[in-house]
Design a protein around this nucleic acid. Structure first.
Lengths: 176, 176
DNA sequence: CCACTATTTCTGTGCCTACTGAAATAACAG
DNA sequence: CTGTTATTTCAGTAGGCACAGAAATAGTGG
């Protein structure tokens, strides 16, 4: 894995680019891509060589990936160096990321909105209360909705998607 | 609106910070926040003064927001300057952003995966085919699932969220 | 057609993050 | 305890995006 096949390289570069679009450091995303397609755990040294980045950079990036919970430190028999592997299950992987982003970004936003609305209640500015209230409602609804589907098995998600428009009728139909 | 109340400022700063976390330029997000809470459309000049950024910066940022489809150019009677307003409906707003991100980022990723898988089919590397295949399946399922719910009315989403765990049983129950 | 205002394009600057390489620390074997 | 290898921390550098301000263009009323 010290040198990459064209396919591996293409995937890793794309994944890195994708990361930056979503606020993830390019190198961090590339390392994750490499570990994701690696058949076996890799030591930091090898990652640095393969991607041509400094060893220290890899060290910090791995810390961040572990912080997201999608990369784990493992040990290989007869090798005292730390090795790293990505989660294999794609659904689980994205659930980890989604959970973390909710915790880091959505929850603080909801807190901010609560504070603003509390302060706005004292003012006679009904307009901003309406606007921030609408935003709050959106986040409350979507997060509580995410809390529901996040624990569905992947198969349920797939089945649901296949239903298409029928899904809507299925759960509004029986009562309305 | 040339000067901001503490609440307005708090919201705008937070929204700008939030933007950067998701790969959106800070100023772009701040301008969007300002327009979102503004009771009336604003001219670029006033946005620049209120947020203390260069007029040209506002011009470019507004272009980007229009590109996302969440800010519209409007005209005010008796004023020849362009004015700008944000979408009011929060759900519609996020649907615009989600649609665009799908178009800009998910679709190209699916294309990349198809190409890689096509090329990998020729090789005898079963492992990378398995990995990229799993990723492809994830994106195909989630996007087709998004295509379903994106056209639900907000009320349906809310109702669905309220059901909680019962939602799963509701649509698996009748047949399984 | 001219003067004036609004808007966009362009170019150089500055700032912020990412990164490297070195130094410090930790982990381990003998 | 000492030498060796692995890892992290740190400080300085560099590269890239965001930004300001100037210049160019477009739009408008007279």
């Amino acid at each position: 894995m010290a040198t990459l096949t064209p396919i591996q390289e293409k995937f890793i570069l794309h994944w890195g680019e994708m990361g930056t679009r979503w606020g993830i450091n390019r190198t961090v995303a590339q390392i994750h891509a490499l570990l994701f397609i690696s058949p076996k755990p890799l030591p930091a040294e090898e990652i640095a060589e393969t991607l041509s980045v400094a060893r220290s950079n890899v060290s910090n990036s791995l810390k961040e990936l572990q912080g997201w919970g999608i990369v784990k430190l493992v040990h290989v028999m007869g090798d005292k160096r730390d090795h790293f592997e990505s989660l294999k299950d794609v659904w689980e992987m994205f659930r980890h990321v989604a959970d973390e982003r909710k915790r880091r970004e959505i929850d603080p936003t909801l807190a901010m909105l609560r504070e603003c609305l509390a302060a706005a209640g004292e003012e006679k500015d009904a307009h901003i209360r309406e606007r921030l209230g609408a935003l709050q409602e959106f986040f409350v609804t979507t997060t509580s909705w995410y809390d529901v589907v996040r624990q569905w098995p992947a198969s349920a998600l797939a089945k649901f998607a296949k239903l298409g428009d029928k899904a809507l009728k299925l759960f509004t139909g029986p009562r309305a």
